[in-house]
Design a protein around this nucleic acid. Structure first.
Length: 139
DNA sequence: GCCAACGTTGGC
DNA sequence: GCCAACGTTGGC
């Protein structure tokens, strides 16, 4: 299984909205960046990801699961763009902020810290483990 | 609201 | 194929 991180501005699409979609999940539309798209293309059903609030909060607030592999983005006419569907799995017990990630040993190479503009990013198993612990979750 | 980082576009 | 101009993201 691989691990990922999905960024969203809570003004545009928040964790609460994601939770409200329940088992149906939500198509992760709107990604118009090749790197982010390629990350989605690498995802398999059952992969897990963190849900991160950018701009407001700047913290990891939940865990999601990939429930459909990459397919054309219904919000784009352009066939270049596709996306996965994710569903909320569990909220964190304690949010993990960007600031904290910058300070925690082992997370200094996280894309969240090093490549701030990438909206869909890979997370290494080691990073996943560390962040889960900080979030009060069992990895 | 500013601006740094970085991705994309388009002229040459 | 280079690179300047431009647009966007996202932290501050």
């Amino acid at each position: 299984m691989n691990f990922w991180l999905f960024k969203s501005e809570p003004d545009a699409w928040s964790w609460d909205q994601q939770v409200a979609r329940g088992e149906a999940g939500e198509e992760w539309t709107g990604v118009r960046n090749y790197q982010a798209r390629n990350n989605m293309r690498s995802m398999k059903i059952g992969d897990r990801g963190f849900f991160y609030h950018s701009n407001i909060g700047k913290e990891i607030v939940g865990v999601v699961e990939v429930i459909r592999e990459s397919a054309p983005d219904s919000t784009s006419e352009d066939p270049r763009w596709d996306c996965v569907v994710i569903k909320a799995v569990t909220p964190v017990k304690r949010p993990v902020s960007l600031e904290e990630c910058k300070d925690v040993p082992g997370l200094e190479n996280m894309a969240l810290v090093k490549n701030t503009r990438l909206s869909v990013q890979p997370v290494s198993p080691a990073e996943w483990d560390i962040v889960c612990r900080l979030a009060g979750l069992t990895p």
